[in-house]
Amino acid sequence: MILRTLAFLCLGGFLSIVPSLSYAGILEDKDCGSCHRLSVEDTKKKFSGPDLHFAGNKFQPKWLKQFLQNPGVIRPAGIITNPGFLQGPPENLPPHPSFLEKDARTLANSLTDLKISGQPLEPVIIEPLSKGQRAKIKYKFERTFSCISCHQSLNLAGKVRGGLSGPSLVNAGNRLQADWVANWLNTPEVYTAKSRMPRYKMDSATRTEFSQFLMTLKKEPASRR
């Protein structure tokens, strides 16, 4: 009888611990939470890295795994909330922790589980863009909406150009989820308290166009030494 109660208690205790650890497990072990926000509730601390509590909505799983094995530079100017942002040319960005294949895979899987729930994503259907369509959207990206002033992208010849204050978009096609891009353009406040990017009013067709356009950008950035 006593044995059975004990077994029950143990099992109960075990079960109640497991769910709370399941996502945090390896991310906690590797101390990712010291620089990254990993849960919506985690609002108190100031983080030196970008928010990852919606990593599962934002990133392509394959890219996450690659990044963790061989992290490249995405924000050449640093993180927008850091006090030093814009104060001078950033030098000596510290290298990001990197991992062997097995750990990278487990970490990437845990990140993919981090999602903001109840967020209705407009599904974006990725169709190949004709040259004419691409040129039309590129015009909007560069002129109508000035996106290029703050974001690196690729010109038609595949050369990198554009500003540095926003994250580089040269590899957006491998890195970001198409639905998330459209959602970011529609409701950035879901993902960040205060962005440095202007808010835009655009219809869903335009958001889809930008998302499709960004999905055509596929160039691996330089890796951190």
Binding site: A77, L86, Q87, S149, G163, L164, S165, K194, R196
Partner: peptide
């Protein structure tokens, strides 16, 4: 001004923000 405009116009407004040379 510091949060938005300084990205291009610079923190002192001298037109030398971090994006300036790339525009």
């Amino acid at each position: 001004y510091q949060w938005y405009c300084a990205q291009c116009h610079g923190i002192e407004g001298k037109g030398n923000g971090i994006n300036a040379k790339l525009l």
